[in-house]
Design a protein around this nucleic acid. Structure first.
Length: 201
DNA sequence: CCCTGATTCGC
DNA sequence: GCGAATCAGG
């Protein structure tokens, strides 16, 4: 592949948006991140060292969350419904840990959030095998608690917690090859669809 | 390990 | 000009 005007344009746009070289390379296809970086340098837009003034304008900080995000595809958050944590049997002693976070008044932003994207069909909790559920709960204790931006193609993207609060993160454990979730979450996300063996009740 | 960008240098 | 290999970090 060669650097056609169109491809260069895409490169410039994505680089300006703060996309990483590898992401740009994947988008363009046919090139490696090294090629992208090399091109970026040749184009002289690696560092914003434009004309004299302004040696450090900090072009960064583009949370993307905000307005217009014409991103046609990245959004790596399909967000299946958060696990319901049905207080399984026994163990009535849940959280001994009281949240030490009194919420500084500075957070007076209202519940805006997010998001709701159409949720994909999700098997209801009561259709999931007990083993799978137990596994999930176990795994969530070890979740890496990654933020949206920290997710990659090989981290589990299972959301945990309430997106409307600060207690929200993604599992982040190593995902199954080709799957968006770790082993435990794949177990609850992908039901054979007939596995609903009717347990009593 | 996974990932990032920066540089070098043969082509 | 190009980009793989390599370097230097996080």
């Amino acid at each position: 592949m060669s650097w056609t005007d169109e491809r260069v344009e895409t490169l410039k746009r994505m680089w300006a948006e703060g996309q990483s070289a590898s992401q740009i390379a994947k988008e363009l296809g046919g090139v490696t991140r090294n090629a992208v970086i090399g091109k970026v340098h040749r184009l002289g837009l690696s560092n914003r060292t434009e004309d004299g003034a302004d040696p450090a304008p900090e072009p960064v900080a583009k949370p993307a969350v905000a307005a217009a995000a014409p991103e046609p595809k990245p959004v790596p958050a399909p967000a299946p419904a958060p696990v319901p944590k049905p207080a399984a049997a026994a163990a009535p002693a849940p959280e001994p840990a009281p949240e030490p976070a009194p919420q500084p008044a500075s957070f007076n932003r209202r519940p805006i959030v997010p998001a709701g994207q159409p949720l994909p069909p999700q098997p209801s909790a009561n259709e999931i095998s007990p083993e799978a559920l137990a596994s999930v709960r176990e795994v969530e204790k070890r979740a890496r608690k990654l933020t949206l931006m920290e997710l990659t193609e090989r981290t589990c993207k299972w959301p945990i917690g309430d997106p409307a609060t600060d207690k929200f993160w993604f599992c982040g454990l190593p995902s199954m090859p080709g799957k968006p979730y770790c082993e435990a979450h794949v177990g609850v996300a992908f039901q054979p669809m007939s596995s609903r063996r009717d347990r009593r009740r």
